[in-house]
Design a protein around this nucleic acid. Sequence first.
DNA 1: CCACAGGACGGCT
DNA 2: AGCCGTCCTGTG
Length: 285
Amino acid sequence: MHYNFTIEKIENFNLTHTFECGQCFRWKPNLDGSYTGIVGEGIYNIRMLEDSDLIIESSIPDSKEFFEKYIDNLTDYSTIKQLLLKSDKSMEKAVEYGYGMRILKQEPWETLASFIISANNNIPRIMKTVENIARAYGKQIEFKGKAYNLFPKPEELADARDEDLKCCGLGFRGKYIKRAAQMISSGEIDLEKIGNMDSTSARSELTKIQGVGPKVADCVLLYSYAKADVFPIDVWIKRIVETIYFGKEKKLHEMQEFARNKYGELAGFAQQYLFYYARENKIGC
DNA sequence: CCACAGGACGGCT
DNA sequence: AGCCGTCCTGTG
């Protein structure tokens, strides 16, 4: 059984640039240009028609409102782009390259776990590991004749056996995932409260979790809580910021400071355009 | 076979 | 406070 809905005449939205810009790990392209993804409690298939209508099939009913929030359809991207385009020539290129990119509003626990896994790791392997965990621990859903697995809740992972986690390909991150799941299911860390904090307090709360440093914390703030004043710096961002702005002489925290001053409340959007542009064009390698 | 890619931690200065 | 070796696994 599946349920259909449409979002008509959508603007500033591109499936590839949104789902393949490195912010999420559970969307896959199909041969016909549509994408299938696992989001929250549901499975979604999404395609865009020539006239910019979005056609969505979902495993759960009445999910249009939820899905519009998830794809950040209430944010005005033309204003964001307009402001960033004025910044400088490189940012202009990055914004134009990543047209239609949206910053998704993802579920905090799944985002936290996924970005703990991202440490010292690359995107294809992160996707594979997340899927392994879902298959081993998450609820299975049938959708259009195929089986999918939701990402498990913290409680479903809190007493996982170490050997089982090892089979998911987590490596040294296994213990971080397990401890994080325990901290959250016990209430020691409250992800809902963190969402109501300002970025600085939320970051220091998140970095209490082992395996969560500044980069992972900022990814959670940006991709789950829509806190766009953060600027997560990974190797790609480091390389492109060095290439564009100042060579090798800046430290990470100086780059952070620079970006927050330059882009302010739009730092997170700036980061996402730069990241996607740098990675797709292998800038700085 | 080895080199390399990719963030956080922890031990060292 | 800052630097750097180590953690794991897939790819070239």
